[in-house]
Design a protein around this nucleic acid. Structure first.
Length: 265
DNA sequence: CTTAAAACACTAAGGATCGG
DNA sequence: CCGATCCTTAGTGTTTTAAG
């Protein structure tokens, strides 16, 4: 076989294979996007309609929400939480609020470039179950019910529970993507990326709650279903890794003359 | 004298702190 | 209070430099 011909065959094979692998990777990326959507949809449906698809519905009179189960009761955030500002605990763990995770220990991430002040005496006490809001990012859904005791930025709002509801239910419900336009509408500022939410208007936001045992069942359901989705996500990410590895290996083999086109083609 | 690659510069996003 | 500013990273845009 003339060398030129071999060269052409190698290039053709390589082109076809790399394109094929890229298409597979793109398809798997799409699967990841769909998994995200599915996750959001499962949570949103569960916290607005519960687990029984045949439950009797009634109109919530809230435009973005539509119909809700007839036996869910209406309340306002301000009836579930009372704002709290307790300072003077500089030795506790510093907490942060992320859109993606809710309330987490600040030290658990290294992507927060803000420097922590030397003097933490102005940081606010957060107890387990407190609702913590990043005022400037609330319109993006940056809030959550804390699973930690610690302290957080003076520019946040800490709400202490005055309810006996299921904290995890409130957490998932208040972080619903459908609520972010509502939070946006009660925020003010000149530059949108630092619009601050008005905590009084936040307290006035209407929400709907099922009985506590139903809240618990919903929380368990969400936790079970998202665990399944996480497993699929992990497997999909592994597959993407392998496909990318295979693509690199093919190119490397072609460059070093190790590619056996005769057998492959 | 184009054209391609490299280098540098600027912007946006996310998460905040600082200071009048 | 709330606008100004900070820090980092990722992505995009623009200017230099090098190559054909």
């Amino acid at each position: 076989m003339p060398p030129d011909d071999l060269q052409v065959r190698i290039e053709t094979f390589l082109d076809r294979e790399t394109v094929r692998l890229e298409v597979l990777v793109a398809a798997k990326q799409r699967v990841l996007d769909l998994l995200d959507e599915k996750r959001k949809a499962i949570i949103a449906t569960a916290v607005t309609h519960g687990l029984n698809p045949k439950v009797e519905l009634r109109d919530s009179d809230v435009p973005w929400l539509g119909k809700i189960p007839a036996h869910w009761r209406s309340t306002r955030v301000g009836r579930l939480f009372r704002q709290s500002k307790i300072l003077g605990h500089p030795d506790l763990t510093v907490l942060s609020v992320y859109r993606e995770f809710g309330v987490i220990e600040r030290a658990s991430r290294d992507d927060n470039a803000n420097r922590v002040p030397d003097d933490l005496s102005k940081y606010q006490l957060v107890e387990v179950g407190d609702l913590v809001i990043n005022k400037m990012k609330a319109w993006q859904g940056s809030l959550g019910v804390s699973a930690f005791r610690g302290i957080t930025s003076p520019d946040y709002v800490v709400f202490r529970p005055v309810h006996s509801e299921e904290p995890q239910f409130l957490h998932s419900m208040l972080r619903m993507p459908q609520l972010t336009p509502v939070y946006l509408s009660i925020s003010n500022g000149i530059r949108i990326n630092q619009w601050r939410i008005e905590s009084e208007r936040f307290a006035n936001v209407e929400v709907f709650l099922p009985p506590v045992d139903e809240q618990r069942a919903i929380v368990q359901y969400i936790s079970r279903e998202t665990a399944k989705l996480d497993a699929v996500r992990a497997a999909t990410e592994r597959t993407i890794g392998l496909l990318k590895e295979r693509r690199s290996a093919l190119i490397a083999a072609a460059v070093t003359g190790q590619l056996d086109v005769g057998a492959a083609a």
